[in-house]
Design a protein around this nucleic acid. Structure first.
Lengths: 329, 329
DNA sequence: CCGGCACATGTTATCGATCACATCGCCGAA
DNA sequence: TTCGGCGATGTGATCGATAACATGTGCCGG
């Protein structure tokens, strides 16, 4: 920096001003400094800046140890958005979302003096950890507890589930069964609510919820039960992997999809279009979630105050071939 | 740090020595300092350390903008391994692996004064970028060009492909068709080589390679062609998504898997066990790749010299239900 | 014609660690 | 006895940026 200052014939402070877009610098001086910077190929030392300001240009993300399509897409989208805004993202994976793990991951980020933190906290057990976090660090939660008063961005699970269920009802099914995600996930809870609401509105009978986890294996098990109940004609699966397991169970028991049973999933994983049959599903807009999250986080960083705004991103129904009218039986 | 020093009755330098495990500190002093640290809840400022040493406790990863199962698993495994070693990982996603993009991502990391960089560089176009990188920064490549003299960790694509092909030949198939990945990917090239080697060894006829990309869509297109050739009884797909597309194409044309056609994939994505039928595939050990990579990187960081060792991780065949003898026709 | 204020710029202290070197005992060999 | 050397510890400089304050210039209004 001193070299740049010397070459431009100014003081290091003026260089700093140019770098930070300070207004009170003469146009001509600014240009000279800029020229010197590019001539020397100067790049500011972020560590020094972080040391004096107490904040680095890094955003921390705490996510569950997961290679699932949803979280991975979210992460990539967030990284891209952050990079555009000049921030680096450092990821802290945890295997379980309990208080201890989250606390540790967050501390690790605070050590690094991150400018802000994003916690992808889809389960209730994360709540306690979040309540005990220092309040002065900008923090946004994704898919967290709707009941917590905190900055939150979330996919509108209920709306998606409603759309899916309605789509099946509109096709003529008298009711729709639901294979749900784990009951401690807010995502799963929201999808159950939406499904139930759609049935209630239509005056349809509400079958018992079939609880599963998010894996194809548990979808397969649920599917085996559903397949042997002849009056089941429509199933809404809480995600695409569950749906895949259900498709396989149906196929094994000779129940054709969609002729005998209609299935709708959630997530729109890239392979969904190549399931047998291609799966009708709900596509959440991960990029919108990422952009919104980043916006809120930067807002908090700039203003220095933590808001508790919340944003909900509506997902979209993607129609493929796994739904038909029951009349076609 | 000064506070800790005062409380322990020593100088800040001694505190620093304790922190960095310097040998020449009396046991008793060390304990006093440790006690003071935990009493005050002191956490060292990483920015200050990075400023003076010129390196941060951060490792940079440059990966292709991808939510694919393989890269995502690799990333998670690497993050976990790095966290255990006290390092944070900052990810720079790029959408294309060309010289410009990689260069930019790497520069961004160098700005941050990362201690080392990992580049996941599965395509030839990445080579040029890597050649122009500063030589003094520790760097390990994953899935890079086997011909480049550089630190490299890679899954043994050829061995996996051979195992897969042999398994099909051993089941009694006279030859095995191959649907490959994009020809500029080293992974795809290695898999083609392994497949061809197995056929040559067995003295089997070598059918033309069907080129595709990694998507289920392109697998489906290739599958449509394969399905209308009655003499095709065995297919080795370069990854599980391709295999999924092939399965669907076969199913549409009424060719049963595995009775009429046997299929083997590569990657062992979590859903593979729930395809119709469950897919026999090759499972790469991403965790081993991640651990090995981290080990090499830390080695370079400590020694200060860049090696050009290379490690190859052998994958494993996972047998499920998508392969049968052609005699069962 | 002068005080004062806004703007442009420079000077010095500061963040929190490590590094290089200085100091102080103490022990053992000449 | 003396001195070299080593182990334990302290002192001051340093990394590269920003913050706070100081300085110098030109313009405006009274």
């Amino acid at each position: 920096m001193t070299d740049v200052a010397r070459l431009a014939g100014v003081s290091h402070q003026t260089v700093s001003r140019v770098l930070n877009g300070h207004p009170n610098v003469r146009e001509q001086t600014r240009n000279r400094v800029r020229a010197a910077i590019s001539e020397l190929g100067y790049r500011p030392n972020r560590a020094a800046k972080a040391l004096v300001t107490g904040r680095s240009q890094v955003l921390g993300v705490v996510a569950q140890n997961s290679t699932l399509y949803g979280p991975a897409s979210l992460l990539v989208a967030f990284e891209n958005a952050a990079a555009e805004a000049g921030f680096t993202v450092s990821v802290g994976n945890v295997s379980v979302l309990d208080r201890h793990s989250i606390g540790r991951a967050v501390e690790q980020h605070l050590d690094q003096r991150v400018a802000g933190i994003v916690v992808i906290a889809p389960v209730a057990s994360a709540n306690e950890a979040l309540d005990h976090l220092p309040a002065d660090v900008p923090l946004v939660t994704i898919d967290g507890d709707p009941a917590r008063p905190a900055a939150l961005v979330t996919v509108d699970q209920a709306a998606g589930a409603r759309d899916a269920t309605k789509f099946l009802l509109d096709a003529g099914h008298s009711t729709v069964w639901h294979v749900s995600g784990p009951s401690d996930w807010f995502d799963a809870i929201g999808r159950i609510e939406g499904w139930r609401a759609a049935l209630t509105e239509a005056g349809a009978e509400i079958p018992p919820v079939m609880a599963a986890d998010w894996t194809a294996a548990s979808g397969y098990r649920a599917g085996q039960m559903l397949a042997r109940m002849p009056d089941v004609t429509a199933v809404f699966a809480a995600n695409d992997h569950l749906a895949l397991g259900i498709l396989r169970a149906m196929s094994e028991r000779g129940r054709r999809v969609p002729e005998d049973v209609s299935v709708v999933g959630f997530d729109d994983v890239p392979e969904a279009a190549y399931f047998i049959p291609p799966l009708t599903t709900i596509r959440p807009d991960f990029e919108a979630v990422a952009r919104t999250t980043l916006g809120m986080l930067l807002g908090q960083i700039e203003s220095g105050s933590s808001t508790s705004t919340r944003h909900t991103i509506a997902p979209e129904l993607v129609v493929r071939d796994s739904v038909a009218s029951p009349g076609q039986r």
